[in-house]
Design a binder for these strands. Structure first.
Lengths: 189, 189, 189, 189
DNA sequence: TACTAACCGAGACGGTACGTCTCGTCTTCCC
DNA sequence: GGGAAGACGAGACGTACCGTCTCGGTTAGTA
């Protein structure tokens, strides 16, 4: 079944995927999201424009995959012993990701375009949020939280949001380092 | 001098400003930032395109004014007795603001453009961030924080970031209500 | 009425019409109909592509006007004293027209495209065929033809067809010169 | 040698030739030459595109064969007793041929492409023009023409041209029937 | 019977033209 | 001099077709 599907016609050249994604990342940091165009990516990657449209239905999808290249670090498993450790680790990971030049360049435009592509929204959440969220929830339950699911989600919202603001508007390391200390993880009030 | 400059010739029709800003707000929630075009604004407002460019140098400036300089009570006075009250009030205010349809629609695109328009960034900060920040700093200092300035900035980053994420990706009221409790305001650890 | 229509907005730049038509004629003889593209015309004429589409709905319309630039010699009045003179003059005029390099280059492609543009077909006939046809009909009637209208049309078909074949497939001057003698203009058999 | 070359490997499927030529004829009358594409022919014939390019080097060659090499009696023998009979017979034959729907559809585009494919031009001439031309020349010489070769060529140009124009631009039967009478075959003036 | 060369479809490839769209500016006439 | 209408150059968009290629698989004839 999949055999017949797989073998029909000339297979796509995987080198084109790589070249296009790399070109997108490079152009992103060079010219920014607004001035990034499919034709520029195609030219830089030495690839025909139809080859791009064959793979990604829009610039948003292409950049989304170019920026969040999950595959090499598929899931940053957070095996933190306590919720405080989880928060610290999560801040470190998210900050590093959001400080990459191509991510900084892509983030705002990507979020603006995400509006028209719900499937990317859910993909983002599934790949990025789910795994860490459940581990945090377990930690909070073990530590006695009465609403571990809600607390875990709220904590993640705070972490991601703070890193987002820092990435977009800039932020001094002094402030960034202070962030983890301002989150309480046993707030049963 | 500017008086004479200002008074020469036919004065600008203020009705055009209103119509353009209203049209921008409406279109923003209807089609989103990406698909918002100057020609669409001009058409909806029954106004010529040059009239828009005479008033605002770019789409970003127009939308910025349409979304933020719209309200009659621009300065939200926060006279909170404690830092916890400040956090609660700030969350309430920011959440309400970021949940308005036109703000939700404009936010990501606006953030993308803020990078290219530092004057808007500083205007936004002055109008929006500064007042609350200094009041929080005073509260924290009074409550014994050793680094009130850093803590105030970090707290504000967390508040704004969390509201941003909630606004962009959606968030259940349960989680939103939980956010203020997860911020500690006396973290001297 | 036409006053208001005429005066609304910026008028079209007539220099663009000239430049585009000239560029089309030049490119026609240089690269031929098949390789003639709107973008090439726009580039050669130093004109934006939308300016072309604003004026002509298709490449066919543009080339049609570029090739049959009637305006300078609006109607080749054939004041021939006899039908034989008319045939000779008509051959001379049509041969000259169909031997122009740009016409030779455009003719076959134009005729292939004419299929999809009936309005150009009728325009061609009205501008090109009608005037000469009626004068020939008068001559034939004066010379005693019993079916002057039919004879005039048939004669014109022969003249145009022969020039068309000569233009497309080439033809020695010996043969070309012989053509007028082979048409009888008083065939009452 | 060519025998071994020809017979090695799987022989070409003759059904593909037929299906492709039939599809080309059908599409020709449906969409016209300009909008005729190889992919459309391949799809209609349920055939892969490479199978077409294996058989014909270009769209022109394919359509040429589809339109002209289709008939079973390729050589129209003209054994006319007089040059007038020849003209009448030639008109009848050519008119019939040029009025076939697929020929009408193919003619202009084919003529446009003939310029770029001299081998097709000569093939067309050999198959189509030569035989009739030499027979007419013999008749004219027998009837006393002083320049039978030139007269024969010119006559053929007139016949083909008139039928071409009639086919392309349409023509009433009244006019078409009149055409043969307007050709003089003994013009020694 | 096995080999093998040429066929077959499907479909990806780089390239290129298409016609449309939006941008921000300019030019015209009217008020 | 403001305002509307709309043309302007520039350039990205997404689609279509071109002619070539690369697949996995098929179909003969030859060994």
């Amino acid at each position: 079944m999949d055999q017949s599907d797989r073998s029909r016609g000339r297979p796509r050249d995987p080198a084109i995927d790589d070249a296009a994604l790399r070109a997108a990342r490079e152009l992103l940091v060079e010219v920014g999201w607004d001035k990034l165009s499919m034709v520029a990516i195609a030219d830089r990657a030495n690839v025909g424009r139809p080859a791009l449209y064959r793979r990604w239905p829009s610039k948003t999808h292409l950049v989304f995959e170019a920026v969040f290249a999950w595959q090499d670090a598929p899931t940053p498993v957070l095996d933190a012993p306590t919720s405080s450790d989880w928060v610290r680790g999560s801040f470190a990971y998210t900050t590093e990701l959001f400080q990459r030049p191509e991510v900084r360049a892509a983030l705002p435009g990507l979020m603006a375009s995400l509006r028209d592509h719900p499937e990317l929204q859910s993909a983002l959440w599934k790949e990025f949020g789910r795994p860490g969220l459940s581990s945090l929830e377990s930690l909070l339950r073990a530590e006695g939280s009465t609403t571990p699911a809600t607390d875990a989600q709220a904590t993640m919202v705070l972490v991601i949001g703070a890193c987002l603001v820092t990435s977009l508007l800039g932020g001094s390391p002094t402030v960034t380092d202070r962030l983890p200390h301002l989150l309480r993880t046993n707030a049963d009030g």
